[in-house]
Each structure stands twice: as structure tokens, then as C-alpha cells.
Design a protein around this nucleic acid. Structure first.
Lengths: 209, 209, 209, 209
DNA sequence: GCCTAACCGAGACGGTACGTCACGTCTTTTA
DNA sequence: TAAAAGACGTGACGTACCGTCTCGGTTAGGC
């Protein structure tokens, strides 16, 4: 399922007055402002968003089919870009990816805002599926690619289940940042997790080359 | 924060007609029935619960202060009991705890129902705090107690951060059962995780440089 | 078609909290107040009525199915009661009935208010039918009954078309009060019309008894 | 107040592309078509007229300031021309005028269409004034002129109030065609009314007491 | 065996938000 | 410059629930 359809006009050659990008930004910024101001997600009505952004309700409904679709775009707009991988080693790549994950759990916009929005998104299967396909899955793929490359390089035993390995790496971070928001995410956490799990995955004898 | 206040009468000697337990059950069962029938959480109004249970709205508000409090009780009623620990070894205790966690992710009531309710609960800080204190924290405490006992027994190095260790164990399970509902939770998963992480945490001699 | 259905509960024994008569009055008074304040009928939204009467929208919709039904009841509430007929003669009865008609065209509530509401009512066939059956037709019947009695008493030639006679009497008044609101409706108008039309209907020779 | 302003360009020498007369006709025809198709006046939006006529909304607003002004022009376009008076006698002229009135109440376009449009027009004082000045008043003036000529000719007593006489003649017709749309308007009605009322107004000797 | 306080169902109440529609204005492309 | 297309802010539509409040009618003790 694609999210690319959100916010787009039906199709055909652009006729009539084009949609204002300024209005678009105003709406997304309005939602972020409200979330950052601590407005509970349940009180975040389209009506209120429209008032805050100085926009008509219909202008919102013209772009998004409802509260949920709008939130997905807000979340996507707040997502930091994917990190650049150093490529020096599987271990270093994993540290960078996990460090990126750790920082998402700290960032101002990506914490209170995302945490609430995630809860909302998760409560609707259709939206969750869209969010998963567009945000979660690509990141997951990134980790798994790194792991597979490690297997080809001999940095990881080829018989290791990369799906499980992925969860062993990202699980400990996510359990803190998503399920226990506000939990301690100290600076060396990513390295610590990577090294510990790698030690468990790469038994002493097999790596004694 | 305590949840014990839910459902209780103000105080004083019981005067007047006592509250009907049958009505209480009917309400909780009504919510579960609706959730199991696939009603999206957002469409689960008090009004609808009352209709389903054949009960007046005031009868619900007499017991719970709102939708959220009611959901917490529904979730608690659906929670499986804590597992009994064998006590033979830290490793075995951990396997039992994680196995219990894995099965919660599979159980019918505890999957669709709980997953949705969790999302709702998480979106309200006050409710989340109550839920955390009454449901999450005790389980977490259980794991950490087992780890500390292991440290005293010599099964785990005493310098290991038990908080981090907890996340290394439970994170991989939760990331599948909560964040990726419907994910594969194969039978030997608990053992596999425990053994892998323990191998990483308790390096016999490889890190003794 | 009956209007008795407006404002009534479905049926059965009165269960639940009864509808407040005070609220009912507040709504009707609110509409009248707005109309008297010169609010154009087109700007008279249910939303505004609710605000004016200090009432929820649903409370209005619970009693009336829409703007039109509400207006009918407002009009009916503003209608003066049918006049008492002296019965001394057909001519005197007609004068009383026409005088009553003339005064409806002068009364404060029954002028601006009714004139606007009539326009609205007439623009909807369904509502017009209901209004006609419940308000217009009974008054028409009254005049025609008086004319028929006059025919039996010998005050009116038996071959006169009473339908046409009715229009000859009431038409001149209505054309002023309804189609030309604000027109002059001098005091002796009713008598003048009755006597003139009667003179035309009762040719000299036939009444020379 | 003049209606001449409707549909006119501000002023000055015609510059730029001239307005299309075809578009103008398409709009007026579109409104009539909708009204004849039984579309309730309340559902007749500018948006819908534009869709029906295949025209942009702005093109309508360029010509008329709103729904009401547009309707006046539609009504005027549907009005039949004033009748030619024979001039043989006051009585004959009155019969021709009333006959013309009677037929307006029968004509297809002038019945359902006009009846609804009238209701709309009457509900707006400004529009009503314009309609009155341009459509109603001239017809009224026509009747009164005929009556005055009759007084000069000796066909009508000079002390008769011509305003009242006018209402005695046109009231009975209008009460049927406007207030009771669909009422019976038989062929000889105009003559019948004129003769009856004239008999009442010109009592040869019966009232000369 | 009453009395009475609290319960129960039903549903009215003042609100808020929903998602749609039409308003009258505006901005764009095309002719 | 007109014309079509359609975006824009505004605000009413009728519906659904919110949480509170009355109703009539039931249960239980406590006297």
C-alpha cells in the first residue's frame, strides 16, 4: 500500500487554481504545533487543526481523507532522514543505524509528537499498514541488508537468522524509545547493544581465525 | 498511582441497593465481545457499549470515570496470570518468562484485543501511568529480580547493567508481538533469544584481555 | 396530512427522562424573537436558533425533522384563535370573519413574522400541504359553512357558487395582507367588502321579498 | 429601484472579449430546466446551475450579484407580455385583464416555476421591492387606469375607491392562482368576477335610499 | 413489613466534532 | 479580457457521542 496518493489531486492536466503549498505547510505545522504544545491526541480534532492553521475544514479534507491520513504525513515530515552508512564494517554500520534509532527517541519533535501519533496510527490497522510499509519496513530492510552483507564478508555466521538478529539489535532500543517513552537512552547505548549481541551471535571458537 | 479506585463506591457503610455484579460482568464482556468482533477501537463508544450490554450509560459512569478507565479493567481481566518460575537456574527462569511473553502475543484475546487497547491506553498519559504501574512494571520487576538472583549465583557477571540486560531479553520479543503484530513467533524463540543474549553477556574468557 | 406528529415521541409508555416543556417554549420563542428582530429568513439556521434559545442542536432535531417543520409550529403558535361568530345573520358572521382576517394582517407577530414564514412554507410543497390542511383549510371551511347557512336562511341565492363567493370575500383582504404586506387595511374594510360583494351576489329583483 | 443594473457591465467602452450571449441564455435556460424538473427551490444552488449550464461560477457572478437577482431575471423572462386592451368598455377591458391573470395561473412555466420563485423573491425585501416595482406595480397601474377611465365614462360611480375596487377584482383570482396553486380556474371565471363585483359597485338604485 | 437509599433502564439535555455541501472570492490556464 | 476550472475561508447541514441529569421503577438492608 502506498501513501503517495495522499495529498494528490485525482489526475489529468492541472486545471483550475492549483493547490497552495503554503496552505499545505500551514496545516502540517499546525498539527505539529498543537502536538508539541501538549494537546492530547484525543482532543486533536480536524476542526481544531483548521482553526489553528487558519484554514477551512474542506481544505484539509481536500488533501487528506481523515485524521489518520493527515497524521501519517505529519509523522513522515518529522522523520529524520536515513543515516549514511560508513561501510567500513558491519559492526560500524550497525552502530550508526542503532545510534540513529536512539536519537529519534530523544529528538524533541520525534518524541512527544511521534509517540502520540504512533499510538493513534497503531490503533487503525489500515493506517498502520500504510505506515509500516512506508516508514518501518524500509528501515528494517536497511538493517537486514547490512547483516546480509556481513554474512558475505564473514563478519556474521551464515547460519544466523537475520530476521531474529535484526530484532535482537533493534528490539532493546525500541522497547525503550517506543514502549517506555522517557526511558534512559545513554550515549554509548548503541555500541553496547551491538557489541553484546554480536558477541552472542559470533561464538568464540568460530571466529578464532 | 493505583487503579483500585475504579469500580468502587465512595465509602461509608453499604446503604441502599448494592451494585449488581451481573451488570458489571455484562459490561466487561460486552467490551470484549465488541473488540473481538473487530470493532475498531475508535468506534467503541460508551454509548455503544451500553447498548451492547443492555445497560444504561449512567450505570457505566457509576463504575468507571470514562472510556479509558474501563479499558484498563478490560485489559487486566484479559491478562494471563504471571507464570510460576521453576527456580532451577536463571537461564530456565528467563526462558519461562519470555515464553510467557511470546504466548501473550499469540493468544486470541490478548492479541487483537490487547493490541488495540494498548494503543488507546498509551495515548493517554494518565492512563498509561496507571497501566504501567499495575501491569508493566511488575513484569519488568520479575525479570530484573531473576537477573539479580543470577548475579548472586554467579550465573551473570555482576558488572552487567540489569536494566539493559532486561531490554536485551524482552525487546526482541516485544518488537515482534507489539510493534509488528502478526509477526512470526516460532516455538523455540524464547530459548533462542535467552541463549544468544546470555552468550553475549557472559563471555567466559574471550573479553578477558 | 397531519401535523400532529411534529414534536411527538415515537410512542409507547413514557420511558426515560421526559422532554422539557420549558425547552420547547424557549425554542419557539427564540425563532419568533429572531424573526421579529428582522433576521432574514434565509439567515435563520437551526444552528442560530439553537444558539439563541441556549439549546443544543440535537434538542431541536429531536422534536422537529428540520427547519420547515419547526416553522409550521411557530406559525401555528402565532395564529390567533378562530373568532366567535355572533350568528345573528350571515352578513354579520362574514364581517366578523373578515375583520379577523384583517387584524391578522396588522398584528405585530402575525405580520412580519408570518409573512416571512409563509414565504418559506410555500416554497416547500410538502410543508405547504401540511400547513394548508391544518391552518388554511379550516378557516376556509368556516366561511363556506357560514355561506351555506346563509343559503338555507334565504340570505344568499341558492344557485351561487360558494367556492367562488368565498374567494370574492377573502381575496380582496388577502391580496393586501399577504401579497402586499404593509398595505393599508382601514378599519371599515371588512364591512365595506362584505356589503359590496353581497350587493353583487344578491341582485335587486331576487331579494325584493 | 431598478432592475436594469442586473446583467450589465460596469460601464465604459466595451473592451476585451465581449460577453457571450449564448452563455447568458444557457444560464437562464438552465435555471428554468431545473425548476421545471421539479427541483425544489431550496436545492437550486448557484453551484448546481453552473454545473447544469456547463458554465463557471464566476461567469454567473459576473452577471448577477446572487441567486435572487438571477431569479428575478428568470421570472421576468417567463412573464407573458401585457395584454392588449380592446377599449370598447371598462367591463370588457377588465375581463381581458383578469383573463390574462387567470391564464398566468395555468401556464406551465408560469405556474410551478413562478409560484416557487415568487416565494423566494418575497422572502427578500430588497428583491421583492425590485420585483414589485418592475412587475407587480405596472399591472396594478393598468387595472387602476381602466377603472379611472370608467369613472370618467360614467361606467363606475366616481365615489368608488379605485384601490379597493382593484382588490375586489384581482383578489379572487390571485387567491386561487398564488395562494392556492392548482385550484380550479374555470374558463368563465374572469367574466363572472367582473360582472358580480361590478353589480355590487354600481348599484343602479337599490342603495340609493 | 415497611422505609428509604441506592440501584437500574431509558433517554433528554447542552455541547463538540464529524464529514459534506454551498456560499462568494480568488487564482490559474486556455482561447 | 472572457471563460472554465477549481482552490480558498466560511459557515450551516444533520448525525453521533460526550458526560450529566432526570424520570419511573426495582431491590436490598435497617428499623
Amino acid at each position: 500500500m502506498s501513501l503517495a496518493g495522499s495529498r494528490s489531486r485525482p489526475d489529468g492536466p492541472a486545471r483550475g487554481r492549483p493547490r497552495s503549498e503554503a496552505v499545505e505547510r500551514a496545516i502540517l505545522e499546525g498539527v505539529m504545533k498543537l502536538l508539541e504544545d501538549g494537546v492530547p491526541l484525543a482532543e486533536l480534532s480536524i476542526e481544531r487543526v483548521a482553526r489553528t492553521a487558519g484554514v477551512g475544514k474542506a481544505t484539509i479534507y481536500r488533501r487528506w481523507s481523515g485524521k489518520e491520513e493527515l497524521f501519517i504525513d505529519v509523522v513522515r515530515a518529522a522523520e529524520p532522514p536515513d543515516p549514511e552508512l560508513p561501510g567500513s564494517s558491519m559492526r560500524d554500520d550497525l552502530v550508526v543505524l542503532l545510534e540513529n534509532l536512539r536519537q529519534r527517541g530523544l529528538a524533541s519533535r520525534s518524541s512527544a509528537l511521534l509517540h502520540n501519533a504512533h499510538a493513534q496510527i497503531k490503533s487503525n490497522p489500515r493506517i498502520w499498514a500504510a505506515y509500516h510499509d512506508n516508514v518501518i519496513a524500509p528501515r528494517r530492510r536497511l538493517v537486514i541488508d547490512v547483516l546480509r552483507r556481513g554474512q558475505r564478508n564473514g563478519e556474521l555466521r551464515p547460519d544466523v537468522d537475520v530476521e531474529l538478529a535484526n530484532d535482537l539489535f533493534v528490539g532493546p532500543i525500541l522497547v525503550r524509545s517506543v514502549l517506555r517513552p522517557g526511558a534512559h537512552l545513554p550515549e554509548g547505548l548503541a555500541e553496547q547493544i551491538v557489541d553484546t549481541v554480536l558477541a552472542g551471535l559470533r561464538p568464540v571458537s568460530s571466529t578464532a581465525s
